[in-house]
Design a protein around this nucleic acid. Structure first.
Length: 482
RNA sequence: GGUGGGGUGGCCGAGUGGCGAGGCAGCGGCCUGCAAAGCCGUAUACGCGGGUUCGAUUCCCGUCCCCACCUCCA
């Protein structure tokens, strides 16, 4: 069975064949770096990381591009606020800060969050501010083709002419007539309220550093233009996959598609959108206050458990967070890991191509059906544990290799963990615990169970869990080793 | 008003015209000195009302409710 993906534009699941055999070109929208990452950002990143990993496991060379929007209204507002009279320092905005420093600071915060969850970097990560000439060129093409125009009010704005492009709305299957009027419908120099800005003329009070000279005057780019310009620059005028969060479908992706198609580019062949993250059924939003940040999640559970949680629902489904969800994910992850610890030797070589069970492949090929893939994973764990119980270590190792291969494809094998296994403190801890376990073993062999249990209780209370196995007692730290 | 997506057992979450994925939690058993881990077993599940069908959670019609997008949003 070949890979099938759901394409938002055609609203159907289709066989995926890349434009160029063996190579996949993928562009997905990253963040506007105006604040710390929230859970939705990392969910999206995990979803596309998963897609890339599966494409690679399927033998494709994937050229992945993810943008950084480092200039926009919000970034300028946040920076400007830090110089305001009523500015109060906060954890996220601790000091006066130029817009470009603010953007770069949060760009790094995003990298930290992605890294913490084992989201691999894309192979290219272009910034909007570095692609002015590409944007000018696209604007030129649109104006020449009669699909864009400089504003009539002398503002220096340049707009896309929605009425000149009959296909406008094709991505989300909406007609311009049926669209709700924007509450802030300020026609300014627009021909139609639906026209959107390709270029925003420089305004009095905006920092000089936040504007560039263009053939249509000094200013800065509109939001959508960068993605059209950068995706085609690095991936070509037609490329395989364009992705992002479901909330980007409109207006962002609709506008990108309109711009690029009107300029004559083939643009994306597949549009993939991941679902939103909700908090007990409601979309997380700062104004409602029902948010949980990636950092808070990482305080509650191990990074691997957080990643498991973020990836466990189908990528197009809404992912609901509720208190306790991370602990459940942690239990599931630990079940898998404890099996791997028992089933696999110290070192082993992994060949995913050979060790992935068919059920897992079929699930992933079916529009990345991760829940079904996880069922295959847990089934292999169960079968492996049964083999271990029966003393069949060869069969257990075979299942172990399967489980490791699946975990690897899911990006769960190499999520960085807090380092508890090295350093002087860890060595001291190990010496102390081993001494306690030796004492307990002695008490047990003397049938002095009261003493043996007292030692175990003491260790348990200290956060050290003891398990007796035929080969002797083993220990592990509970609760992520906090 | 327009456009999409949903309502599945205590919770999460796949899926299918007929043999009840998977995880978490619970209960019973095996194992264990006792535990832990593991294994086995265990649930009148598919919003509501009709219809099609030998048979519908799955298809059709109606209906109720929820969510998202149409404004910055992953």
């Amino acid at each position: 069975m070949a890979l099938r993906l759901y394409d938002t534009k055609t609203a159907s699941t289709r066989d995926f064949e890349p434009l160029e055999p063996g190579r996949v070109s993928l562009y997905y929208c990253g963040a506007t770096v105006q604040g710390r990452p929230h859970v939705g950002h990392v969910r999206s990143a995990v979803a596309f990381d998963l897609l890339i990993r599966w494409l690679e496991a399927s033998g494709y060379d994937v050229l992945s591009v993810r943008n950084v929007t480092d200039i926009d209204d919000k970034i300028l507002e946040k920076s400007e606020a830090s110089y305001g009279a009523d500015y109060l320092p906060s954890a996220d905005y601790p000091a006066e800060e130029p817009w470009f420093a603010l953007a770069y600071r949060f760009e790094q915060a995003f990298h930290e969050a992605y890294d913490a969850l084992g989201v691999r970097r894309p192979r290219c990560e272009p910034r909007a501010t570095g692609h002015m000439t590409e944007m000018f060129e696209l604007m030129r093409r649109l104006i020449d083709a009669g699909h864009a125009y400089p504003a009539s009010d002398g503002s220096g704005d340049v707009y896309f002419d929605v009425r000149s492009w009959p296909q406008y709305g094709e991505l989300t299957r909406q007609s311009v007539e049926d669209m709700q009027d924007a509450p802030d419908a300020d026609p300014r120099g627009k021909r139609d309220p639906r026209d959107f800005a390709l270029w925003k003329g420089h305004k009095e009070g905006d920092p000089e550093s936040a504007s560039w000279d263009s053939p249509w005057g000094r200013g800065r780019p509109g939001w959508h233009l960068e993605c059209s310009a950068m995706s085609t620059k690095y991936l070509g005028s037609t490329f395989d996959i364009h992705g992002g969060g479901l909330d980007l479908r409109f207006p962002h992706h609709e506008n990108e598609l309109a711009q690029s198609a009107a300029a004559g580019d083939g643009f994306a062949r597949f549009w993939l959108h991941n679902g939103m993250v909700t908090y007990e059924g409601e979309k997380m939003s700062k104004s409602v206050g029902n948010t949980i940040s990636p950092q808070e999640m990482l305080e509650q559970a191990r990074p691997k458990a957080v990643r498991y949680f973020l990836g466990q629902a189908h990528y197009r489904s809404q992912l609901d967070y509720r208190p306790g969800a991370l602990q459940e994910a942690e239990a599931a992850v630990e079940r898998v890991e404890s099996f791997l610890d028992r089933a696999l030797p110290e070192s082993f070589s992994l060949r995913p191509q050979r060790h992935l069970p068919d059920a897992f492949r079929e699930a992933m090929d079916d529009d990345l059906n991760v829940p079904a893939a996880l069922a295959a994973l847990h089934e292999a764990v169960r079968a492996g544990n049964t083999a271990l119980d029966a003393g069949d270590s060869a069969a257990a190792e075979e299942r172990g290799l399967e489980v490791a291969a699946m975990m690897s494809v899911l990006g769960l094998l190499e999520v960085p963990e807090p380092d508890l296994s090295s350093g002087p403190a860890a060595a001291a801890l190990e010496t102390l615990i081993e001494a306690q376990l030796a004492e307990r073993a002695e008490a047990k062999s003397a049938k002095d169970f009261a003493s043996a249990d007292a030692i175990r209780d003491r260790l348990t209370a200290a956060g050290v869990q003891i398990e007796d196995t035929p080969a002797g007692a083993t220990w592990s730290l509970t609760k992520g080793g906090a």
